[in-house]
């Protein structure tokens, strides 16, 4: 083991300090969810606030039963599908746009602010505007068409800005070297650019997924005959709110954390093999 020089010790202290801060931060952002975790085990006759009236798995069981109002499972599947599609499109479009923006081109300023406008249009009116146009043209709304359209409008600027950050300070000398050696554009992209920007693409996609999965206002008039999850939850609130929602929230949190654990494991294995 290396000796503890003052410099090493200082670094260790700084790192510990930051780690503790990170943990406090995680507690902070998970704060309100703690009540959610506990209350998902609410007794059969209890509700979505304290006191607990016994403990049970009753509400967890309700997750797989058909719901009273709406269609929780179906809505969740639709929202997941929608979010996944949005994720792919967001990642694709924002990468393409950011690559285009590496060069100066005619109308780039206008395009930039058009993309940004997607962040700024209040969702409810975007939904109204598009719904009206579609009515005029006799096109029915559906979650996989119109809702998908406005979701991408909303998520694209996030992915785009992330990709802009990636391409800024991007060292293009490698690409040029490859071109000089006669590689075509596809090869350059596949072999050089893509590996460098993959984390950014993943982040852009994640933004897309996250923002779409939770989007309510933009979907109000554009989901068509079948609700997405936020619409369904919103509808269920015109009745008594049941701890089923908390079970759902807890389940998705546990599932997400498990996926991250899985990611860590897979990455570790792959990394070892590649070495």
């Amino acid at each position: 083991m290396a000796r503890w020089t003052p410099e090493r010790r200082r670094k260790a202290w700084v790192k510990t300090g930051f780690s503790v801060y990170y943990m406090i931060f995680v507690v902070f952002i998970y704060g309100p969810m703690i009540a959610m975790f506990i209350l998902s085990f609410q007794g059969r006759r209890g509700g979505t606030s304290f006191p607990m009236r016994g403990t049970s798995l009753y509400w967890w069981g309700k997750l797989i039963e058909p719901s009273t109002v709406g269609d929780l499972q179906g809505a969740m599947m639709r929202s997941l599908m929608l979010a996944l599609i949005v994720m792919v499109i967001t990642a694709l479009f924002s990468t393409m746009l950011a690559m285009a923006f590496r060069k100066k081109f005619y109308g780039s300023g206008l395009l930039f602010y058009t993309v940004m406008a997607g962040l700024m249009v209040p969702g409810i009116l975007l939904s109204l505007g598009l719904a009206t146009l579609m009515r005029q043209m006799g096109i029915p709304a559906a979650w996989w068409s119109s809702a998908l359209g406005v979701h991408v409008v909303w998520t694209l600027p996030f992915g785009f800005l992330v990709m802009m950050a990636v391409f800024n300070r991007f060292d293009s000398s490698l690409e040029e070297a490859a071109r000089d050696m006669g590689a075509d554009e596809w090869t350059v992209f596949k072999e050089i650019t893509l590996p460098l920007i993959t984390p950014g693409i993943v982040a852009a996609g994640l933004f897309g997924f996250t923002l779409s999965y939770d989007e309510f206002a933009r979907t109000t008039l554009l989901a068509g005959a079948e609700n997405t999850l936020p619409l369904d939850i919103n509808a269920s609130m015109t009745q008594r709110i049941r701890p089923t929602l908390f079970a759902l929230g807890t389940a998705s949190t546990v599932f997400s954390l498990a996926m991250i654990g899985l990611f860590l494991a897979i990455y570790t294995v792959l990394y070892r093999r590649s070495r």
Binding site: D232, N234, A235
Partner: peptide
Amino acid sequence: QALGYGAMFGK
């Protein structure tokens, strides 16, 4: 199709 009040009214 159940909706919240605002969404219902708009639709």
